Simulated scan of single mutants.
Amino acid sequence: MTGESAPAGIQSLKHAFEVIEKMAAIGEPIGVTELAKALGIPKTRTFRYLRTLKTLGYVSQDSSTEKYRLTLRLFHIGQAVADSTQLLTEARAAMVQLRKETQQTVTLSSIENDGVRVLDIVRAHSPVQIVTRPGALLEFHSSAQGRVALAFGSASLWQAVRDKPMTQWTPHTNTDLATLEAEVAEARERGWATAPEQTLVGVNALAAPIFGANRELIATITVAGSLQHVPARPPEALLASVMQAARRISENLGCTEYPV
């Protein structure tokens, strides 16, 4: 698709990125006129892109010089991407080993404000196929990962639970807030969480927390399978394997003292 035939929205997005890249290359505050000249686009259009980027928090303007500069928002986004990449790299070997030990599907998930995002899956060959895919967002109340997030993550995560009705995925899904609070408190005390038949009938998951260098919760590792293989009260051997994997990944990420 050429620049001339691209839809206006795509052209605007393209130019907005060009503004960011040019400002990054210049490396110092710059005025609208100078930036427009460097980009080779009209001053009015350059101003419009800067105004939008300022509204979004990617650009700031000095009130005395009226010059613009990039904020640290892009740095934080880049850092988040780097952290996720490191997490995936460090977790993969432990996930494969955990799948080998348990013969169950293993997932790695990160914590977001409105749920738990599946980052990676190592699937097991089983008659019960776990249909969750990387990129899926699991709700806090109905997943083992979500319960771990509520137990060890920021208290602000509870807001996503309280802001909307809890989805009834199966006849067994708990949608009572007081019951969920008690289950999360129990998960915090024992260091892991399960979610038997909360999302799928006949399926359970067992999740443990992964901590970063500052002992902050950054992810969860989970085994999922039929209730026959991942019962509501997991056997000691299964618990030991999951907790060992969580500790190993946490240590690789710089957590010298696992909090659980």
Score class of each variant (00 low, 15 high):
1 M>N: 11
6 A>R: 11
10 I>H: 05
11 Q>R: 13
12 S>F: 06
12 S>G: 01
19 V>Y: 01
21 E>Q: 12
25 A>W: 04
29 P>Y: 10
29 P>M: 15
29 P>E: 02
31 G>R: 01
33 T>I: 11
33 T>A: 15
33 T>L: 14
38 A>M: 10
43 K>I: 14
50 L>K: 00
53 L>N: 13
53 L>W: 08
54 K>F: 00
56 L>K: 07
56 L>N: 07
57 G>Q: 04
60 S>E: 13
62 D>S: 09
65 T>A: 09
65 T>F: 12
65 T>D: 13
66 E>T: 03
67 K>D: 03
68 Y>R: 13
70 L>D: 02
71 T>R: 01
72 L>I: 10
74 L>F: 09
75 F>G: 06
75 F>L: 10
75 F>K: 07
76 H>R: 14
76 H>P: 06
81 V>R: 15
81 V>G: 15
83 D>F: 08
84 S>Y: 09
85 T>M: 11
90 E>K: 06
94 A>T: 08
96 V>N: 13
97 Q>K: 13
99 R>W: 09
99 R>L: 11
102 T>I: 01
105 T>V: 06
106 V>E: 11
108 L>G: 05
110 S>H: 04
110 S>A: 13
111 I>N: 00
117 R>G: 11
121 I>P: 03
121 I>C: 02
121 I>K: 02
122 V>L: 12
123 R>I: 05
124 A>E: 00
125 H>V: 15
127 P>N: 08
127 P>L: 08
129 Q>S: 13
134 P>Q: 02
135 G>C: 15
139 E>H: 12
139 E>I: 06
140 F>H: 02
140 F>M: 04
141 H>I: 03
145 Q>F: 10
147 R>D: 04
148 V>F: 05
153 G>I: 04
154 S>Q: 03
155 A>G: 08
155 A>Q: 14
158 W>M: 00
159 Q>N: 09
159 Q>G: 03
160 A>Q: 00
175 T>D: 07
178 A>Q: 12
178 A>F: 09
180 L>P: 07
186 E>F: 10
187 A>V: 02
190 R>S: 05
194 T>C: 04
196 P>K: 09
196 P>Y: 09
197 E>Y: 05
197 E>V: 03
199 T>Q: 12
200 L>V: 12
201 V>M: 06
201 V>E: 11
201 V>L: 12
209 P>T: 03
210 I>L: 05
211 F>G: 02
214 N>F: 12
219 A>F: 02
224 A>C: 02
225 G>R: 08
225 G>F: 14
227 L>G: 15
231 P>N: 03
237 A>C: 00
241 S>D: 02
243 M>F: 04
243 M>A: 06
244 Q>R: 10
246 A>N: 03
250 S>W: 07
251 E>P: 14
252 N>I: 14
252 N>S: 12
256 T>D: 05
259 P>R: 09
260 V>A: 07
260 V>I: 14
